[in-house]
């Protein structure tokens, strides 16, 4: 599995466009949203929106990997992998781990912008915990993106990933707090993976450990998306 991770990380780093835009887009959105809307005067919202947007950026970077996977599939590379001794679970896990390379710079960029440009003040441990939690917590979305990539065409993957991303971000409360939604939508929002993910960050800036509920929700989605990715990988190698 480690050779696979190394290979994929190397390939990703040779694609600077992907890295620059994957990181640049959410960063720009964060700076625009927080400085144009005039809501920048509330410190709480500054920190909370920083976490929300970092989560959104991480989510986007995590899922974007699916497009690359779909094009690998169209080259026949996934079939080629299937006839090596690399088993499906390791193939999917390895790909998920190597994908997180693109997630980290996105998270770092938005947290940096929050601290330096928007003046968000947090304790040192909170910054550390934020980076770590937002990085690792993106794993379910990586798996979802990968699963889509294994299953769909490159174009299809792009469209489906953007739809998932927007839906999750909106309903999960990454762009606007869940509190502004009607009751039923708020209830649904609490169970979305994106909300569980962002809650890791919100708990951190509130100074306490993430709630067991959020962790359970996130873990549930991790298993679900992981299973989906492995199933799609097995299917992807079939020729008929």
């Amino acid at each position: 599995m480690f050779p696979y991770i190394a290979l994929e990380i190397r390939r990703t780093l040779r694609d600077p466009t992907f890295l620059v835009f994957g990181t640049g887009m959410p960063l720009m959105m964060y700076l625009l949203f927080t400085n144009l809307g005039g809501s920048g005067s509330y410190d709480d919202w500054k920190a909370a929106s920083m976490v929300g947007m970092a989560a959104y950026g991480a989510l986007g970077s995590a899922m974007a990997i699916g497009t690359g996977i779909a094009s690998d599939k169209s080259l026949g590379w996934l079939q080629q992998l299937r006839i090596t001794p690399l088993d499906p679970w390791r193939a999917v896990t390895g790909r998920a781990i190597s994908s997180s390379v693109t997630v980290l710079p996105t998270v770092l960029a938005i947290l940096l912008a929050g601290g330096l440009v928007n003046g968000v003040r947090l304790a040192a441990w909170q910054w550390g915990a934020l980076v770590l939690l937002l990085w690792l917590g993106a794993l379910p979305f990586t798996l979802l993106g990968i699963g889509n990539g294994y299953r769909l065409t490159p174009q299809g993957t792009g469209v489906v990933n953007v739809a998932c991303l927007m839906g999750f971000a909106l309903v999960g409360g990454l762009w606007f707090p869940l509190g502004v939604f009607p009751g039923w939508l708020r209830a649904v929002g609490g169970f979305t993976p994106a909300h569980g993910f962002a809650d890791l960050g919100w708990s951190t800036i509130a100074g306490h450990a993430p709630g067991a509920g959020s962790l359970a929700v996130l873990a549930g989605w991790l298993l679900l998306f992981g299973g989906y990715a492995v199933m799609s990988y097995r299917r992807s190698a079939r020729t008929v």
Partner: peptide, 18 residues
């Protein structure tokens, strides 16, 4: 295949870029 007993060159396969 899992035991590493087979290798193959499939039809129309192209190696990955980068």
């Amino acid at each position: 295949v899992r035991a590493g007993l087979a290798g193959a060159m499939l039809q129309d396969g192209r190696p990955i870029p980068r």
